[in-house]
Write a protein that binds this DNA or RNA. Sequence first.
DNA 1: GGTAGTTACGAATTTCGTAACAATC
DNA 2: GATTGTTACGAAATTCGTAACTACC
Lengths: 102, 102
Amino acid sequence: MSLSQIQYFVAVAEEGHVGRAAQRLYVAQPAVSRQIRALEDEIGTPLFTRTPRGMQLLPPGRVFLDRARAILVAVEEAANAARAAGAVARSAVGAGPPKSTG
Amino acid sequence: MSLSQIQYFVAVAEEGHVGRAAQRLYVAQPAVSRQIRALEDEIGTPLFTRTPRGMQLLPPGRVFLDRARAILVAVEEAANAARAAGAVARSAVGAGPPKSTG
DNA sequence: GGTAGTTACGAATTTCGTAACAATC
DNA sequence: GATTGTTACGAAATTCGTAACTACC
């Protein structure tokens, strides 16, 4: 499983449509279709039903969607938190030793 | 950023040593070293100090570590939850219609 | 016939491992 | 000189896009 697969999955779930998800992700449809299938293979259960109108979430897909969104948010937050910690360290170095607390 | 990078990062942080992390991950040292550097580049701040004794976490690295562990756990749980939902659906189909609630 | 998803296949990208290098004790 | 992390470079694996295919209305 990869973060790209999770990202592709969320896009398809939200669009209900592989083609529109692909447009949103700036990739071709087959790339999305393949990654969704690979994700279903790895999890071991289908996440969507394929209908002539598009992709519809199955119960496992609904369960996965909530957690997938949370994972993507957590990844962003982890990076931002580390960046912030790095910026603090650099500004502290740049500012030199503090004169005092008062 | 990829899940592999997060996994590599946690291994290095826990081992304090690229070589031991690589052994634990069943890959060669350079693969780990490169992914750690790529992660630091993407985040935009160093996560470790390189010492002759190994790798030591910097403040941004400590911040990132907690969240990285949580992300890996969340990925596992997401897959397990979807699997469980799929198994329930299949057993319900296999069992046929319920006779009643009592 | 038009829309939607999926395979097939070759190309581009990414990741990897071996070997050589740099730095510290 | 022994240990540790990092580059260099070619090989392996993954991912991608175009084109062709299948299924349903």
